[in-house]
Design a protein around this nucleic acid. Structure first.
Lengths: 355, 355
DNA sequence: CTGTTAGCGCATTCAG
DNA sequence: CTGAATGCGCTAACAG
């Protein structure tokens, strides 16, 4: 049997209330008594039973997710992962609310963070836009003692407690490594399609990509900025494919892949040897299967949401997380290892009572 | 506030004890009463608070892991992931024991499963060897009502409740897809290094690999069986490299990669264009960094262990799992997206009490 | 400053 | 067959 508060009380010769006070760092205990209790705690190797504590407190963790609005497929997928989490949350005593703000709008995001602070949630998760007003609002949250987890898109480390997302430099390098091998040994010309170079994720991916591709002698054409807009992407890529018939690869490091895919479909004969994009959505998945795209780098939105919740809970409780479990992988999908289409949860046979 | 047993009792006009009897499907309740209670339960949308239930029961889930002994790097890594889980387990009321049996030894494994059954654990996880006596022992566990999760290596679906491992056919296809692209457009000769064709995982990987590689016109040389033995692998690959100077690729689908790597290191000039192996270990990691291997397909042993525990717990409780969370990915590692070396857990600042 | 007491939601004796 | 009472490990009034 694991030791309980009673064991501590007996060992230290005090009452349960006093033990509870020192366990929860509450005032009103003489220093000497506190020391005795703490000695007892470590002597018998006590560890608090969080489930029992939460039961007694009728505690519910209230978390707030702040996501960008708009029709970005990845973000909408992320939102539906949050909704799934909301449904599951009750059984774990967590209540999740969700608000959306206009994408890339630093002022709105900062306002949302300030509004969040007023609500005094147990934690906040946000798809960040790295701008001074957002950083300032994040610091205000920190001062209010509210843990903040950045999701997908990060802020400087001192502004948040944890980042649930991928290493974008490594992702760019990975795309570059695949590009080098897919495009073949002889140096060629490679195009990069980006959302906006103002977003840090995109800059980092480009940087990593350059690191990996440059040594092989390939030429990287001037970056095409489509601002995550499918129509713009289609126009730019269409023009590219006619101007550069010998193109050996395209790396699409942002959103707006619908446009890229449409342009490739129109000119299938002129398709470069290697096309690599980010985020597995219905569109990129179909393009992989149709062999219009060769590889998709992905971050698992479901994992990111679950991880954010676990980390916020751990922060609220002041306990450690399993680092390996919270590392978001850079998934590489080829048409050969596509997971089954997004499904709901499993429905097991409710066994009466095994053991 | 979520409804509790008291609410059910009030709604149905019975006592707590009766509610408890129908909740836990225990006898001693008149059919009519039972019906009233069940009506009340679904009327108010009751969901049991597992944390409170476990507290009242002082329940501890006892799970048993059965792993192969031997010096296979992947299996030893798996074992250390189990040890980590053992350490963390107490706080979740789970007690994990671990036993090892000689690798590929069906009789010993079957005996271990039977011994496990005697202990009446709440669940068993096993790296299976698919043999008749093992299947029989698995069925006996099932009849005893003890959930069984296969880990890494599967059994027929009717013998176990869940498989925590990768889809090996898809893994083979993935290796083939990479091979086709890495080896270049012109058809070439490709070697396959296997452990033993008697293991189902290896047969499946080969099958998937063939599916993906054959259409491109490559020739797959007769499979080299090294029985997961580094020395044998080194000999076989050494001979191969001298006999086949024009080799375009090697796919190592089993263990014993140390030997493969040693042979490649010795004859670096004769290195084929594409070398693909399985499982990220210290050896394959170093070989990726040294560019002796181009890609490593991996299954995350830590994820597999955590998943097995979650699934066993869910089975014991008769609740659903999050399917997406329990799907084990086929990770693709290039030198560009290697994760940081295996580390311990994070040490957070224990915040006093946030919200 | 410290101790007593009554629950949190549920399971389980033991009477009726 | 059914109900009242007690306790799991912990927290939170309320007294002293």
């Amino acid at each position: 049997m694991r030791p309980t508060v009673h064991d501590i009380a007996a060992e230290a010769g005090v009452s349960l209330a006093t033990v509870d006070r020192v366990l929860n760092r509450r005032p009103g205990v003489k220093a000497a008594t506190r020391a005795r209790v703490e000695a007892a705690i470590s002597a018998i190797g006590y560890e608090r039973d969080m489930a029992a504590a939460n039961l007694a407190k009728s505690r519910v963790y209230s978390f707030l997710f702040i996501l960008p609005s708009g029709d970005n497929s990845f973000m909408r997928g992320l939102e539906s992962r949050v909704h799934e989490a909301v449904r599951r949350a009750a059984v774990d005593r967590v209540a999740i609310s969700l608000v959306t703000v206009p994408p890339f709008d630093a002022a709105s995001l900062a306002a949302a963070l300030d509004a969040a602070r007023e609500l005094q949630p147990a934690g906040v998760a946000v798809v960040a836009v790295d701008a001074p007003e957002v950083e300032a609002a994040a610091m205000r949250l920190k001062e209010a003692g509210i843990p903040l987890v950045t999701l997908v898109s990060d802020l400087p480390a001192e502004c948040r407690s944890h980042f649930a997302g991928i290493d974008n430099i490594a992702a760019g390098r990975t795309a570059g490594g695949l590009m080098r091998r897919f495009a073949g040994p002889e140096p060629g010309r490679i195009a990069v399609l980006a959302g906006s170079m103002r977003v840090i994720d995109h800059r980092e991916r480009l940087e990593g990509f350059r690191q990996a591709v440059a040594p092989a002698g390939h030429v990287i054409l001037p970056v095409l900025e489509a601002h995550d807009d499918p129509a713009a992407a289609e126009r730019l890529v269409g023009a590219l494919l006619t101007q550069e018939p010998e193109l050996s690869g395209i790396y699409s490091l942002g959103a707006g892949n619908r446009g890229l895919i449409a342009a490739l479909r129109l000119q299938k004969q002129a398709r470069p040897r290697a096309v690599i994009a980010h985020e597995l959505t219905a569109h990129t998945r179909a393009a992989l299967e149709a062999e219009l795209i060769d590889a998709v780098l992905n971050q698992d939105a479901g994992h990111e949401v679950r991880s954010a919740i676990r980390v916020l809970k751990a922060r609220a409780d002041g306990v450690a997380v399993i680092a390996a479990q919270e590392r978001i992988r850079i998934d590489i999908f080829l048409k050969d290892n596509l997971p089954f289409a997004e499904g709901g949860d499993e429905a097991p046979a409710p066994s009466p009572d095994a053991a």
